[in-house]
Design a protein around this nucleic acid. Sequence first.
DNA 1: TTTATTTACGAAAACGATGTAGTTATATTT
DNA 2: AAATATAACTACATCGTTTTCGTAAATAAA
Lengths: 337, 337
Amino acid sequence: MSKVNLKSLSNKLNVSVSTVSKALRGSYEIGSDTKKRVIDMAQEMGYTPNPYAGFLRNNKSKTIALIIPEMTNNFFIQAISGAESIAQEKDYHTLIYITHDDFKKEESILKDLQNGRVDGVIMSLAAGTKTYDHLNELIQSNIPIVFFDRICHEIETAKISTDDFASGFNATEHLIQNGCRDIAYLSLSENLSIDNKRKQGYFEALTKHDIKIDNSRIIMCGTDEKNNYKKIAALLKSGKKPDGIFASVETLAITSYLVCNDLKLKIPEKIKIICFANLITAPLLNPSLTTITQPAFEMGKQAADILFKYLGKKRTLMSNENIVLKSELVIRGSTRK
Amino acid sequence: MSKVNLKSLSNKLNVSVSTVSKALRGSYEIGSDTKKRVIDMAQEMGYTPNPYAGFLRNNKSKTIALIIPEMTNNFFIQAISGAESIAQEKDYHTLIYITHDDFKKEESILKDLQNGRVDGVIMSLAAGTKTYDHLNELIQSNIPIVFFDRICHEIETAKISTDDFASGFNATEHLIQNGCRDIAYLSLSENLSIDNKRKQGYFEALTKHDIKIDNSRIIMCGTDEKNNYKKIAALLKSGKKPDGIFASVETLAITSYLVCNDLKLKIPEKIKIICFANLITAPLLNPSLTTITQPAFEMGKQAADILFKYLGKKRTLMSNENIVLKSELVIRGSTRK
DNA sequence: TTTATTTACGAAAACGATGTAGTTATATTT
DNA sequence: AAATATAACTACATCGTTTTCGTAAATAAA
């Protein structure tokens, strides 16, 4: 199958390459009969433009990048699903990158995007990210970034997040109201602002209800499941185990459930669990899991919307919008009094 | 930030563009001192090559496409996760497309890929796909396709699947051995070979155990959750409801659970459920869900491996490999006798 | 009829990187 | 010293588009 491009079309039709190009783009410069001839022939020969030629010419790739920390978290799946749906609507293509919460990987991915491979980036920070030079460099290369969920306050750009402080507060207060007095907070990473805000909300609720803050109840988990299991198991095996667990992310709640299963610790009788999660199976778990559920799909959509709004305009600076959506506390069996 | 490209580098260094290019690619034609000068300057100015220029020149994009039917299925998430991990290893970029099980969408996505946007495609067919012209066209445009799971037998290329017939047989026999005599099969789509094979396995097991095949027990579900709910609810509300359900995909089992919850139908006492699934929460459900679990991550990896092996070689035809991995039957509470 | 305008097209220069085919020097061989 | 080889570079065409700038013919205005 020989290549069909503008040149081969122009040969067949005995017109110039520019005429073919203009005809296909519907330029007013081309007569309507010629236009039809060209379009028909293009159809017949199955012409599709070489995307990269156009990108090179216009410095526009019609491609965006989605950068997420991991795939084993329904929140991110739903969020990229939302972003992808908008991209598809806008006839954009979507590159996906997983950082596995590794700073080095995030850095190298961004570097790879610097020279115009994408028109824009939608991302959520890796847990391991503490410095932001790589982000600034990308923006200085004229590639806009929209953050969602794990946003970076230090960068001036658009950010979509949820009311993490309030949610952390509500989750904790919900546990307290259902009888918990000694609540452990399972943290994913100290680097993440969302984690810190959730934790601040947790502190605030404890304070409000006159419960002494005990820093040993902040369990520093991470991305290594086995390690998390060990830490949570140690917590729940200890003599003075907590009566409530507030897991900052989905996987930590799942691991907590597994530990409780293995230790034959009854939820919610012996310990109550609440968790940030977008699990479809949350209502079907044993017991059903009380969650703070973020509007993940909507967040992805809005992130994409903002990005495309910006891409439509010409080269102003991306504004420092800070969109905050509300999460929903869905009360289920795991926190029953 | 003005653009840094070969030309701007060559200006700074007072050498030609070709020298810069060759120096950066380590050509033997360039003296070692010049080489160092160039490389240092490139480093200093933060040069990264414009990807599209190279693609245009070499007709290679270092990009692959992952095309999947949906994201609300952990199988696909794990599979693309596996494929992405290999792509990242090989320094390839990964475009992702969701067909939402829609043939038209699949068709238009493939058309969009035809002119060299990607070097290869890894995909799973949409449930709505019955004709394969769009697939053949892509291959004729010299873009190789590797199928996984929802493979297309009609196309000569590499395919990664699991032992669906055997799994269907085993799942059904497992139900029978635990006392079921009237098993409903929840089908996703008649178009999909995997669905048909699973169903054939189901038939075979029924026959082996002298259970009459009843075609009204084949419930044609689809991608519309609400509709599935209605159909399953109708099935379980009817006077002669089945004593076992074999769900061909994850979501159908989840919906079945929801229906049973709402109808207060006890699993596994009143009805047993088994399902193809890659749910992390399967052991935590109420009751824990017996699954046939496919090696999804491994399938994605192998699909990518084969694709890259082919991309490494020069332009032979893609061989008609048919790799079949084994799924695992994980017995849990939902099929307990 | 002469001059301006419109219509419909073509030539050619980008976009940025690569690689072939020169072109100088310098070094080596005869 | 002349011929040849080698080292180290440069010029330029190329990939497939898009787009600016021409330009010729046809039409309209003077």
